[in-house]
Every structure is written in structure tokens, then in C-alpha cells.
Design a binder for these strands. Structure first.
Lengths: 223, 223
DNA sequence: ATAATTGTCGAACGAACGTTCGACTGATTC
DNA sequence: GAATCAGTCGAACGTTCGTTCGACAATTAT
């Protein structure tokens, strides 16, 4: 297994090398739009040579998705260990998600965007991890409700809205223009917990706006 | 063939018919994964017959996206007319978006998911509408800030997070299981404005949680 | 030294792709 | 009643697709 083979390439392991290039091609052209020939060209491995490492195009996507998703999930479970406070757990989840997302944007785009491309057993396995990830988030939200911290919102809608907020990032985030992972995470934590509307502060600083704010609160309470 | 495709009526109804089926096929298999033959089979129009109405596969996607997006944008501008209060404008935007999304889930999935499939002039035109839509949302958010209603959040991040929350719906919403458009809109309006955390109410009902909530507020203020 | 294994690739397979062409229909126009 | 027209489609075009095969070099095991 661990053969110390000396080949022409400096890369010790070729499968990861292929997976990296495949992920890039998939992210740029989409799974169906990308051809094995594109991946061959990008990775420098011949068309036939690729099939020594992977048995199909589907398997290629499967490996990318499963590696990526498992990494996100494992890091999350690790960082969640020992954290009891639901709000802190939520903060950890969002930070972990965005941190991984912006550190591996290519793989995460493939994971987010090529959600329906896999079929059969491959699909089922990725869906299984997705379910575990979702259950953790749902558990956190229900933990908040149990402690009286969360409003009586549909938990499923709340959690999936949060996922939407986070996963949509791949469509707009540009490094250098948009905030980095840590700042973005704090912003989204704040938005998810307290929304975009000012709390007490603005009432004190700008008394003229009190009426409007009170009206808003009334509307909110009624809904 | 057993459809009402007799020549009794001027066949000006046929392009919309094709577009409907094309949208369904694109939504199920993705733009690249769908073939013109799939659309031919689904719509009942022969392969060559399709090309009497459309000049390319790209044009098919372009028409679906531009019709859908223009409809959403026009309805929004119409409903926004005469509404001055930024919060009410935001409510209108979210309601309009979700209402259209759940009423035309197939087209909206194609619009959301096949964002990068178009090229050249087609792509530019759709992007142009997208920009106008984004600018409206940004304007609303900055209107809120101008009135002291919104926290000092990155406006771009706030607006794109909202879009993420709304557009991600196509990945999870199941009619019959999940809330309808109006209820969903109210939930998301509430989440975006005030977050998931309880406001005054829980402080009165559950005094034991006050300490925790205060700590959260402090953390929030510091970030 | 020889056999077996691992890694690599050019060439080719059949299938599917988007698109085009010419022929045909039935109705409308002159 | 001949010409024009919109509408429709079977058949085929050239290209690209995912995948396979056989050959061959290099390395490791016997």
C-alpha cells in the first residue's frame, strides 16, 4: 500500500492531485458540463491514465463531495465537543462552516452546487452525511428553544434559512472585496440571532425614530 | 400527439409550451445534463421542429431566465410603488420573491441554479436584470440604515445573505410539508429583521434567562 | 535473470450530443 | 390552379462524450 515509488512526478500521491484538478474543473463548468478530457488536460494525466485511479466520472465527484463534507462534519463535531451553551454551539457551527467554505471555495462550490448530480449509492452516502449535519444544526436550534432563547419559529425553516445564507456565499463572495471568514461568521451569527434591526441602542441615540421602531415591534409581535 | 395540438388555433401558443417543458427538463437534469432530445420528448415536438421556434439551446435557457426574472422584477417594482417605509418595502420584496418562487418553482430553480450556464450577450442581459434587482434590495437596506433602523452591518453582506436565504429554498422546500409563501415570507421577514432570538417577551416570561440574554447582547455589541 | 506488478498512454469504441437539411403537409393568396 | 407560406419532421451531419483495450516501460519480487 505505502510503496515508496519513485516516478517522474514530484507529487507523492496522484489521486489527490487529480481530485484537486477535477474539483476545479467541476466548479468552473459544472459536473455535466465538464468532460473527463478537461480533467485530463488540467491535471496533466492522460485520458486513459485517469481510469487507473478512478473508475468513473461519478466516482470522481463522489470522492470530492464525500472528502469535503466529511472534513467539514468532523471538524464541526470536534469543535463542538465540550461546548454546551446552544448559542455558543451555533456560533461554532457558523464559524466552522464559513471558515471551511472560504478556505476551500472550489470544493465547497462543487458540494453545494452539484447536489443532484450523483446517483444511486453514491448519492445516498452523501445525503447521509448531509442529514447528520442538518440534525446537528436542528439540535442546536431546538436547544436554544428549550432554554427559551429562540423565538417560536419553524425550526426546519430557521435552520435551512441559515444554511441558505451560508451556502449561497459561493455565488457572490470575492476574496479581497468581501469580509474574511471570521468577520463574515460574526456578521452572520449576529444576523441569524438578532436580525439587522437595531436593538436598544438606536432608541437612545435617535429618539426621533422611537415611534417608528415601536410600530415595528408591534407589527412583529402580531405576526 | 393526443394533446390539443390540432391546427384549430394559431400556434402562437407553442413557444410557451416548449419553454414550459424545457424549464422542467432543465430543472430536473440541469442545463448541461439536459439534451434537446429530452425536451423534444417531453414537449411532444420533434427534434427538428423545435428549431423552428428557437435557434439554439442557449436561447432556450435565455428565454426562460429572462421571462422569469423580468416577471419577478416587474411585479416587485409594481408592488413597491407608493411604499415609502423601508421596512415595509423590505417586507414587500421578500413577500414578492417568495410568492413568485413558490408559484413558479421550476422556473425559479432554473434561474437560481443555472446562473453560469449562459454566455456572451445572453449572460450579460440576465446579469443586468440581476443587478437592478440587487440594487433595489441594497437601496431598501440603506434606506433602513438612513432611518437608524438597521444595525451597522455590511450592506452587501446583509442583502446577499437575504438572497441566499430566499434562493436556497429550491433545494429544500416541499409543498405540503413546508409553509406556504405567505407564512414563509413572514418567517423570513422576522428572521431577517429581528433574528431567531427572543426579544422582550422571554425576559418577562422567563427571568432566569435574563443573564444569558444580556451576555449575548454584550457580545453582540462588542463585535 | 526472470517473472510479476504497477503505472501510463495512444487509439479506438459505440453512444449521445446540438444542429441542419430537404421534403412534405395543409392552408392562404393571387 | 399555381404559387406562396408557416409549420413539421425523419434522417443525417460532424463532433464530443465516457469508457475500454492492448501495448509498453519501469519497478519490485522471486
Amino acid at each position: 500500500m505505502r510503496t515508496h515509488s519513485r516516478v517522474s512526478r514530484p507529487s507523492q500521491q496522484k489521486l489527490p492531485h487529480i481530485l484537486r484538478h477535477a474539483a476545479r474543473v467541476f466548479s468552473e463548468k459544472g459536473y455535466e458540463g465538464a468532460s473527463i478530457r478537461d480533467i485530463s488536460r488540467s491535471s496533466g494525466v492522460s485520458l486513459a491514465g485517469l481510469y487507473y485511479y478512478i473508475e468513473s466520472k461519478q466516482k470522481l465527484l463522489y470522492l470530492i463531495q464525500i472528502y469535503t463534507f466529511k472534513a467539514v462534519l468532523e471538524r464541526l463535531e470536534e469543535r463542538l465537543r465540550g461546548v454546551a451553551d446552544p448559542v455558543e454551539r451555533l456560533r461554532v457551527l457558523i464559524r466552522n462552516h464559513l471558515d471551511y467554505f472560504l478556505r476551500h471555495p472550489i470544493e465547497m462550490k462543487v458540494l453545494s452546487h452539484e447536489d443532484e448530480a450523483l446517483e444511486g449509492e453514491y448519492r445516498k452516502e452523501v445525503l447521509d452525511i448531509k442529514r447528520r449535519y442538518y440534525d446537528i444544526a436542528l439540535g442546536i436550534f431546538e436547544g436554544m428553544r428549550r432554554e427559551g432563547l429562540a423565538r417560536r419559529l419553524n425550526p426546519r425553516v430557521a435552520v435551512l434559512s441559515l444554511f441558505g445564507m451560508m451556502n449561497w456565499i459561493y455565488t457572490w463572495h470575492r476574496p479581497g472585496v468581501d469580509p474574511r471568514a471570521d468577520a463574515l461568521a460574526e456578521t452572520m451569527v449576529g444576523m441569524f440571532l438578532h436580525g439587522v434591526v437595531d436593538g436598544q441602542k438606536s432608541l437612545r441615540v435617535k429618539p426621533a425614530r422611537v415611534v417608528r421602531s415601536r410600530r415595528l415591534a408591534a407589527v412583529r409581535a402580531a405576526s
